[in-house]
Design a protein around this nucleic acid. Sequence first.
DNA 1: ATACACTATAAGATATTATTATTTATAAGG
DNA 2: CCTTATAAATAATAATATCTTATAGTGTAT
Lengths: 314, 314
Amino acid sequence: MDQGLRIFITVAKTRSFSRAAEELHLTQPAVSQQIRSLESRYDTRLFERNNKSVELTPAGKILFREGTEILNQYARTKRLIEDLTQSANGPLSLGASYTFGEYVLPPVLAKFCAHYPQIRPKVTIHNTQRIAEEVRRRMLDIGLVEGKIDHPELEILPVSEDELFVTLSANHPLASAGKVHVKDLADERWILRENGSGTRDVANQFFKDTGLSPKNILEFGSTQVIKESVETGLGLSILSPWSFRKELLLGTLHTLSVQGISMRRHFYALTRATSFHTKAMDLFLDFLTPELHNHPFPTTHAHLSLEPPQNEGL
Amino acid sequence: MDQGLRIFITVAKTRSFSRAAEELHLTQPAVSQQIRSLESRYDTRLFERNNKSVELTPAGKILFREGTEILNQYARTKRLIEDLTQSANGPLSLGASYTFGEYVLPPVLAKFCAHYPQIRPKVTIHNTQRIAEEVRRRMLDIGLVEGKIDHPELEILPVSEDELFVTLSANHPLASAGKVHVKDLADERWILRENGSGTRDVANQFFKDTGLSPKNILEFGSTQVIKESVETGLGLSILSPWSFRKELLLGTLHTLSVQGISMRRHFYALTRATSFHTKAMDLFLDFLTPELHNHPFPTTHAHLSLEPPQNEGL
DNA sequence: ATACACTATAAGATATTATTATTTATAAGG
DNA sequence: CCTTATAAATAATAATATCTTATAGTGTAT
């Protein structure tokens, strides 16, 4: 930041060009050169150097004293700014898509807040597109979304895997089938999130892959309503187990694997590619991935192997 | 010598990347780039820039304040070194508190400038506290204040005595009393500078010493307004004769001595304790004290003994 | 909707700063 | 004296940093 001055101060302290060079991990000519350039800038000799010794001239003494203060102030400034930013505190605005925000995020966030009480997270829930847009516009520090986003201004970091399943009422004829064939689902009624939601994207892909073209689709804007509708036997849905952990534990909802089809996707964290991260942001990002691996990720079928995902005490 | 910092400061002052570029004879991208590199060095945003405005962030404000000082010190260092070889010249930044700056300093400064035309003094007027702070922060070479300052980083040099007097209109019943007793002042209305000013401090001390607790105090922020108000008979004030020499000469204001009470104080010159003095600084300090003794110091009552303090040709 | 006033970004040119290799000067030891 | 050791200066070159030119976004105002 002012290398010349730093070199000068070191020479003055060590009374040697060579020692100074060592100390600064530079070569001796680099030191000679910087001193020469300072001397020409101030238009005076700064050191009296007769081959055995290096001594400050009067001008050098002034520069040494003032320069020391300047370097101190650089250091002080850096510290002041670090105190301001590096201390992990202040606001952290998170945006999450529905599934992530409503089901995955809360326990993680609770733990995060316990760890870093000075950080005050604020969560906004929207669909993936909107979240991405708001991260880009700096309205959000971090976006947490279900679908892949490709935008040059956004940095995308996969934080967790997710697998969606065909979900149905425990009273449904297929409920205990576990694994079924595509054709078994041909005549079912489906209850899905609206188009545009990440979950619906996966469902649409599922229908495309399986060749199913269901005539009977109900669209609800709320996962909560969908779950309750499925529980009453109104139809089947395609959901992330994250969103119906409780229902799996209670046994009111079951999942099906469909022969040869898996509906995997990732959760991603989005940040602006070009912006700086606050300390709080980095802490959260570092916290997120391991934390999601701690929470036993509910990939398997409820009736086969579900473990209480957290201390939810059944 | 630290181009990045210089660019940053210019941007902060102009609140514009483009203006800063012009001012520094650079192109706008050069400015953008330096700001970006500073931002990455400090790992935080320094400006909040939306297309219409450029504003300092909290971190930016810190860097602006500290950085300004750093640049000042670079400049000062250069001057100090130049002083070694050259004769006294260049800038001399003086800060003075109100009474000193507005009434005492001007004639001294005029004479000083006549003696040393190559020195270019710059005067800033503020209250004593602020002046001391700016000397400490190296924003000022010399501070000239009315109150005693005790700070380890400051060197304090008494330059002159001052005695304040109760001041009143020539038409006031007590105007020709010369010496009065405390109780004569019990029911007067007072017109004083605001709290925090050095002059007001003395007034407050006066009330404490005399046991007067005036119910009727008007506060004005300007000594000029106070004088005119006192002239019209609105009330009494407590002022330094320095600030109403003309009115004493004209006979529109008179002073009173209060039995057993004197309001003496000193004017002090402040410099940084640890720093070098430029030649200009030393010359000014050496010039100041004898000069103030030359100007007949108006301690006595106007109607008794005032001499024209300078060639003001009555 | 278009122009305009700004800042951001990218790529290449220039300037600055560091390195390597070599030279000069002085002191110390034989 | 001559040799060797140590320290700084110098020159040529390599690596960085810093500018400029050209261009792209992005809001605001007309």
